[in-house]
Nucleic acid binder design. Structure first.
Length: 432
RNA sequence: GGAGAGAUGGCCGAGUGGUUGAAGGCGCACGCUUGGAAAGCGUGUAUGGCAGCAAUGUUAUCGCAGGUUCGAAUCCUGUUCUCUCCGCCA
């Protein structure tokens, strides 16, 4: 959610920003809803003041008939206006929540993801002296992926991962946790990326719940019943589609002391996505499944450090991919692609030989206070003032980098060279 | 899953219908006292909305939602969570 006061004072900017993100919203209409709810609120306050006055006047016992009678009349009127206020509030919030977060001025304006801007290209695309296989051909030959039997059990877009592919995946989690848990490595990443001054506090490993209640999920702004989120029948619970969804609301309704910030977490969870509307797309292999595992960064910070926090997350992603030796591009996402809660967003796309293009493997979200406001996660500054924290999240690894490793590091005989960074977690094997 | 008990401010804890946003204590902040400290004393110490430049005023909040009442932290209903016992179980 935006700050209503900001919207009142910047209605044109807000409307233009929404337009840039692809939303057609009538901000003036939303402000009229705001006005009517405020007017009703003031009326309710006045009636309640009178009610309290009457109530206090009768405190000593022996209630007078006249006052009781006035109280009765007051109650009828109050109920009526309170009901009106309640529905005005509901209508307002529903519309108000549609307003997307303000994009930073530096975010390129665009209407589709094709207008995302490549800001960095790292690593060389592999050259093969044989015909490279797609990851599903390769994995099929090695019996690493079984989607046929998974379909029998759970339907399309599920998979059994098997054998060394599972080992490789586990290595990825271990490696990611080790990097994010090392203050020395973080300091090096900070120094190498000109982020000096930012904290080198390590990320705390987290295994969060994989489900969240409706109201919690809504507060994070991530509940998307139409396309993405699975509901658990007979329960007020939804399956998370990322560890972020259950880490972000961790400090809901809390005021954190400034000294605790930044709070950095690296969460591991299985993610579930309905992927409605993507039928036919990426149907082969494990690039797009209903269920996959993921390691995710999340941080809570003060407003003045949150942008550095975001840049650190991107730098960490680039470090990890560079260490693995995968060719990738870093993209500054345009207004159409960053999403409603974001003020800025970065994707990392990794080269997939089978597709002949860079495909999204990572994303990093800079959300400012847009998520913290509905979650009521605040910070008490050293000065004593209370304000909303800023939240950031970013992918460490999903299963997609496995796809990239398989395709980029395959050998002519159908094996895969294990990236040196992962070998310590693979019994020092050089190939699988 | 069954039975019982409970949920009050940063913490402990009083409060079963009427100046209770909430006693008392702890903690914290400032001041006094002191050579300095401790102790002692005094003052202050929640969050959101609305109005206001501000001081401030007003309103809401005693797990959450609804109800009864002129008036609810207090009564009723539902719900969530915690604890104890039983059952089951990785």
């Amino acid at each position: 959610m935006l700050d209503i006061r900001f919207v009142r004072e910047n209605s044109e900017k807000v409307e233009q920003n929404a337009k840039n993100k692809g939303y057609n919203l009538d901000v003036a209409a939303i402000l009229r809803l705001d006005d009517s709810r405020r007017t009703l609120g003031q009326q309710v306050d006045e009636l309640r003041t009178r009610r309290n006055t009457i109530s206090n006047a009768m405190k000593g016992g022996k209630p007078s008939d006249e006052l009781v009678e006035e109280g009765k009349q007051l109650k009828i009127k109050l109920t009526e206006i309170e009901d009106a206020l309640c529905s005005a509030e509901e209508t307002f919030i529903e519309e108000f929540k549609k307003l997307p977060n303000m994009a930073l001025d530096s975010v390129p304006v665009g209407t589709t993801e094709d207008e995302n801007v490549v800001i960095k290209t790292v690593g060389d695309k592999p050259e093969f002296d044989f015909t490279p296989k797609s990851h599903w051909e390769l994995a099929g030959a090695r019996d690493w992926i079984d989607k046929e039997r998974a379909a029998k059990i759970a339907g399309a877009r599920f998979a059994y991962l098997k054998g060394d592919l599972v080992r490789l995946e586990m290595a990825l989690w271990q490696y990611g946790m080790d990097v994010l848990g090392s203050e020395v490595t973080l300091q090096k990443i900070i120094d190498d990326n000109g982020l000096q001054g930012i904290s080198s506090k390590p990320f705390t490993p987290i295994i969060p719940p994989a489900v969240a209640r409706t109201d919690v999920f809504q507060a994070t702004g991530r509940l998307n019943k139409e396309e993405q989120t699975y509901k658990i029948e007979d329960e007020d619970l939804w399956l998370n589609a990322s560890a972020e969804h259950t880490m972000a609301p961790m400090y809901m309704n809390e005021i954190l002391p400034q000294a605790k910030l930044p709070i950095r977490m690296v969460g591991y969870t299985t993610a579930f996505r309905r992927e409605a509307g993507t039928y036919g797309k990426d149907a082969e292999g494990i690039f797009r499944l209903h269920q996959f595992n993921k390691l995710e960064m999340e941080s809570f910070s003060t407003p003045e450090t949150s942008l550095s926090e975001h840049l650190l997350m991107v730098a960490i992603q680039e470090y990890l991919m560079t260490q693995l030796g995968l060719p990738f591009q870093t993209l500054e996402k345009c207004t159409a692609d960053i999403g409603r809660p974001n003020a800025k967003g970065v994707d990392i796309n990794t080269w997939l030989p089978s597709q002949g293009e860079y495909r999204e493997t990572h994303t990093a979200d800079y959300i400012t206070d847009y998520q913290a406001r509905p979650m009521k996660t605040r910070v008490r500054r050293e000065s004593g003032e209370v304000e909303y924290v800023h939240t950031n999240d970013a992918t460490v690894f999903s299963e997609r980098p496995l796809v990239a490793i398989l395709e980029n590091f395959q050998t002519a005989d159908g094996h895969v060279i294990v990236p040196a960074a992962l070998r310590p977690y693979m019994g020092n094997r050089e190939t699988i």
